[in-house]
Amino acid sequence: MLKRAIVLTAGVLMLAGCATQTRYVDPAADDGPVAMTMDYRDFEKAATEAVEDMVASGAVSNPNGGRYIMVVSRVTNDTMQRIDTDQLTKKIRVALLRSGKVVTTTAVGLNGAEDEMSMAARELRNSEEFDQSGVQKKGTLQAPDLSLSGKILQRNHTVGKEQQVEYYIMLSLTDLATGLAFWEGETPIIKRGSNDSVSW
C-alpha cells in the first residue's frame, strides 16, 4: 500500500515537473509563436494602422477647432471565432482620445447607451431627495459628429498541405451630418500554417 502511494506521488511530481511553467508575456517584447486564430497582436496591428491613417489623413481633425465627438456603431464579427469587437474598437478609441482630436460618447449606441448612467443621472431631476444644483441640466448631452463602424471577415483556404486563413479588418468613419465616409481602411491579416491547426 505504502509502495503504491510512493510510486503515485513520484509520478505526479514527475508530471508536474514536465508541465510548462506559466509566465507573463510583455506585449512590448513578445516574440512568441503565432496562432492561427486572431490574437492581441493582430488587433494591435489593425488598430495602429487605422489610427495612424485616420490621423495622417486629417479626417479626425476638426477645422473649427475642438474635438470631434465619435460614436461606436456596429462592428460585425463575420469570422468563425467568438470575437468581442470591443477589443479592436477600444484600442482605436483610446488612441484617438489620446491624440486630442476625438472624444467618444458613451451616451448613445445602437443597442442603447454604452453607459446608461448619463440618462439615469437625469432621472434625479425634480427629486426632492437630491440637491438640484448638482443634477445635470437639460440640453447638456453632446450629439456625435462621427460614427465608427466595420466588419471583421474570415476566409479559409487549403494551400498544398497547409491552410491559409485570411482575416480582413474593415473600418469606416462616417460623418453623421452628411452620411459620407470621411475615412475608410482595410487591414488584411494572412496566416499560413499546419492543416491540423484550428482557426475557430
Partner: peptide, 22 residues
C-alpha cells in the same frame, strides 16, 4: 501610441520596402 509592440515585416532579396509611421 496605440501599442508598444514591434511590427513584423518580411523583405525579399533585392527588394526595397518603405515603411511609414505617424
Amino acid at each position: 501610441g496605440v501599442a508598444d509592440g514591434y511590427r513584423r515585416a518580411s523583405v525579399l532579396l533585392g527588394q526595397t520596402r518603405y515603411f511609414k509611421a505617424t
